[in-house]
Design a protein around this nucleic acid. Sequence first.
DNA 1: AACCCCAACCCAATCGATTGGGTAAGGGAC
DNA 2: GTCCCTTACCCAATCGATTGGGTTGGGGTT
Lengths: 341, 341
Amino acid sequence: MKEFTVDGRTVTLKDLANELGIHPSTVSRILHSGSDVARGAASVATAERVRELARKRGYSPNPQAAGLRTRRTRLTGVIVPRLSDLVLAVMYEGIDEAAAELGYSTFVMNSRDDPEEQRRKTDTMLARRVDGLIIGDAHLDGSHLRELTARKVPFVLMNRRVPGYPSATCDDVLGGQLAADHLWSNGHRNVAVIAGEPYASTAVDRTAGFVDRWQSLGGKISQEAVVWSRFDTAGGRVAAETILAGRNHYPTAIFAVNDFAAIGCMGALRSHGLTVGRDVAVVGFNDTSVASELPIPLSSVRSPMLKIGRTAMQLLKRVLDGEPVEPVLLQPTLCVRESSA
Amino acid sequence: MKEFTVDGRTVTLKDLANELGIHPSTVSRILHSGSDVARGAASVATAERVRELARKRGYSPNPQAAGLRTRRTRLTGVIVPRLSDLVLAVMYEGIDEAAAELGYSTFVMNSRDDPEEQRRKTDTMLARRVDGLIIGDAHLDGSHLRELTARKVPFVLMNRRVPGYPSATCDDVLGGQLAADHLWSNGHRNVAVIAGEPYASTAVDRTAGFVDRWQSLGGKISQEAVVWSRFDTAGGRVAAETILAGRNHYPTAIFAVNDFAAIGCMGALRSHGLTVGRDVAVVGFNDTSVASELPIPLSSVRSPMLKIGRTAMQLLKRVLDGEPVEPVLLQPTLCVRESSA
DNA sequence: AACCCCAACCCAATCGATTGGGTAAGGGAC
DNA sequence: GTCCCTTACCCAATCGATTGGGTTGGGGTT
């Protein structure tokens, strides 16, 4: 509850100090020291009086002032391709939860996966003096990340990884393998992959995991059966059209590296008179909340999105504290539903 | 591009002033005055030298310091039920665009429509000294808003309106009418409504618009045909089950006040062996990006989500500038697709 | 010659919190 | 009694930008 002094300003340290007849610095030290009095800054009785008054007046420290002095804002920046991508939105919820617990606030910005925008947004965040960044739109080439490192900006990656940088991601290779195992054991031998954008590790790892496992199971999968695509529904539809157009006999199963691409794919299949689940199996990735509620519920590799976001924030905190950090891989699980049962 | 002085700190006004042998205040005035020199603060030549050096050194003003002095942070807070609700995510993109244009940055937080959380998040934002708030989770009872007004916090509503407060919303009553007109003219006479949460104006207005228009067209619609529900897919499924369970003959059309509820509804219909579009027409609301790409494309009342977000931010800016503002209603349009053709 | 004005600057206080370095009073050891 | 150590504080500089109020020197007026 923000309160005001008689003249309408918000309550400051000095106000509290004046009212109690002690020095602002003493008040500061008391309010800083958890519940024990730090470095003998004040007597227990005084500390109690100060805390009591602070509560009563609704004192809330001015972060501008504190940040100015301490050179830390407890602000973090989050950059994602788009927040209207459900996957990133959920991850952001995880970040936000963890940030609140750690006493940080966060800015989010969309880069639309455009390198130019990535730089611009990064600069905007740095101009705001964020303590660190969570990058959710890393491209595998990594030139942007090298710049950040050169500028000594603390950051961690989320969702997509790039070798050599700290990150919190799903074990996407494993996720691809789970999908391959599932389709193979259901008897499919002719499959295609809607692979996503080649600059994203999510797309590359999931596809690689799937293809490698498929081949080690003894399956064949041709070049043309792997179609790169955008990550959204429209992209999935286009990719599915390509798959259906380019071959004389349809695959019996399609693995899409993303639920929304899978949904677009299901739409295309239906347009071709094919029934999902009976004629063609479809497996998506992420198990977003729509997957289970679709008219034909979608099988999907569940990635722990909320956890990934939380982990990213916790990793960043450790980076900011100067601790060493390693990339973290979180485990996916397969959810089989009607689309591939 | 953030640059550093020799000793590793970021560049300050004083650094620039020292290097040019003039006073920091002069530099400040020059950099503040657009491209013309304000109030004769400096000669054109000096102004040019200052701007040139600022560019060269990559000077970027410290917002903490400026905010401390001016008591404005150019920060705004955005509170939404959940950012993983696609509708709110898109609106937030609109806010973010407009905020960037106006020189503001934004925090977003999720309240999950919980009054307790709304207060907590509001307080967190105010503790961060935001200049104003955009409230995307207003409840019709409005007690929280009365508090905000009492505390003299500048704010505007977005997505949901509450009479008496400035807001940027879709004309939801009109949206409901569009849906009613469409279904009526397609010959439907037995309809049901999945109405959403009764505390949200979106739900209430869309439902009222639909029901009132339906009745004025001469239709009948019973109490039990209007089912309140959560806004997500699961909520839509449950509501649809209620509709299908409670009646001896199924409605031939269902209007859901939200696309995700509509998707859940489509799932439930299919589970009952009904084909969407042939046996039962379904119309959603918002025209989110999935609607058109679903296996059975969903008819939906399109609301200008991005525009609503942009407008909300622009309204807030006007409030912050002390200008008078009125609620803004943005026009929806109907997109007819296979689910109700 | 006295006066005023304007351009082009400078000065210093201010915003609110933090922090390294005091200092005064009191108690205990020897 | 002297010395030292705590305890419980106070003091003042500092972070970086902003802003109301100077000051100076030159030119124009009358």
